[in-house]
Amino acid sequence: MDFVLPEFNAPNFESHAFISSPNVHTEEVIKNGVAPENFHATTIFPEYFKINNKWTLANNSRMDCVVVVSDDGLEVKEFRKLIVGDRVIVGRNEDATQGIYVHTNGFQSERQSDETFVFRTGRSRETSFSRDYDRLYELLRYEKDNGYIVFVLGPAVTFDQDSKKAIVSLIQKGYVHAVLAGNALATHDLEGELFKTALGQDIYTQVPISKGHYHHIDLINKARQYRSLEEFVIQEGICDGIVYACLKHNVPLILAGSIRDDGPLPGIIPNAYDAQDKMREYTKKSTTVLGLATQLHTIAVGNMTPSYQVVNSSIRPVFIYSVDVSEFVVNKLRDRGTLGATSIVTNIQDFLVNLNRNLH
């Protein structure tokens, strides 16, 4: 089955409500990093602003930011990036009455049941995900050549030989356009290549190895002799694994530091805001995001990613998936504002193996 993107239903700006509405009001920033009172905060949805009697969509949006008006148009800015003189849109009404319109129903969706009382409407371990898998396969086949697929990976991906092989295979096949992760993902991936363990356990048998608890810190210590992960991989003769595959196939690997990191490895971005800015370079381009077995990184990336993307002057949806064995984790992303996310409750190793087997 060929995948077809949902059509975008734009607002009818010829209607009286939009024509009669005022232009947006702005106020200037008077202290760096501080927005004027009554600022408008962005959502995950497409947002339009009336400027000089014309409705304009904010591109490259993200949740919980402000919109700055300049001679070049609209810019969605984090609060910390505001500078004195920025003209920030103010107003809390989102129904066009203040020149601000948040379009929550822009994309067509499958017909929902008209029944007022039904069972099993949540996403839990009892949910059947067969249709979700099939739709994901169709989506990724389309996105491989027509979109930008970002994987957000937790270290559990590296704890099993088959799941490691699966993600490496997906990279080789072209289904991974960028990887966002932390120190642990790269550490245990490289530990697996040098020692065949992850956190001291054999990555196939799961049997703890004698003195295996030293392996990940031995790996970090050895890697820190080098200026970069690329130099480390070359000099140590590593020729497989996730890090190697990303380097070989020119897939950006963005590794954000954490307060709990060991070492860390060379190439980790230690400053949280620098890491956020680097990750944003790729969430701005993303059309599909898959967050796998990492609660914090998935929520962070979800909050940086809007529900839409402007590609070749057309508005299309951004698809976000949260996959974890914990119902709490997959549903927390939605609770934190990423309302369009699809949750799949399953063991991450099984998910990746299934994904790879069905994508060629």
Rank of each mutant, 00 (worst) to 15 (best):
N358T: 03
H216V: 04
T121C: 10
D202F: 10
H103Q: 12
F328S: 12
K81V: 07
S128I: 10
D218H: 06
V102Q: 09
L136P: 01
N183Y: 00
F3I: 11
N32D: 15
T287L: 03
A178E: 07
V29L: 09
S314C: 02
E115Y: 05
E110T: 10
S21D: 00
I149K: 09
N60F: 12
Q112K: 10
E126N: 06
V88N: 11
G147W: 08
L355N: 06
V76S: 10
G212E: 09
V168L: 00
H249R: 15
I254D: 11
N271D: 15
I242S: 14
S163H: 01
T56D: 06
L5A: 12
V68M: 01
K81C: 00
V289A: 08
D114L: 13
V84P: 00
L139A: 08
E28T: 05
K164F: 07
S343T: 04
N183G: 01
Y273N: 03
S228D: 05
E126Q: 02
L355F: 08
D114N: 13
K164P: 00
K285H: 04
Q276T: 04
V289Y: 09
I344L: 12
Y244V: 14
F107Y: 05
L170E: 03
E281G: 04
L339S: 07
I259A: 00
E236V: 11
V251S: 13
I299E: 13
L153A: 08
T43D: 08
Q235Y: 11
F129P: 04
K165V: 05
Q276F: 04
R357S: 05
A275L: 08
R80W: 08
N146K: 06
L140K: 05
R120K: 13
E126R: 02
N221W: 05
T127W: 08
Y282W: 14
Y308N: 11
T26C: 13
Q309M: 00
E110G: 09
L82M: 07
G241K: 07
I220M: 11
P36S: 15
H297L: 03
V34C: 12
S61T: 14
D324Q: 11
D240C: 07
A256K: 09
G106V: 09
L194M: 15
F351T: 11
G154L: 04
S21Q: 03
E126K: 06
V66G: 02
G182I: 04
L333S: 00
Q276M: 09
R224E: 12
S326R: 02
I242C: 14
D218Y: 06
L352R: 01
L82A: 09
F49R: 13
I171N: 03
L82F: 04
H40T: 05
W55Y: 07
F319L: 13
Q309L: 06
P252M: 14
M1V: 12
L199R: 12
N183A: 07
L290N: 10
I149A: 10
S21G: 08
R62L: 09
L170Y: 04
V176Q: 01
P11F: 01
Q112V: 05
Q201I: 04
V329S: 01
A272T: 00
P208N: 02
L190Y: 04
G337I: 03
Y282C: 12
S326A: 06
K222M: 15
S113C: 08
V76C: 14
V329N: 02
L229Q: 13
H103M: 09
A275Q: 07
G257T: 01
A181N: 03
Q349D: 13
S109I: 12
L339V: 02
V243M: 13
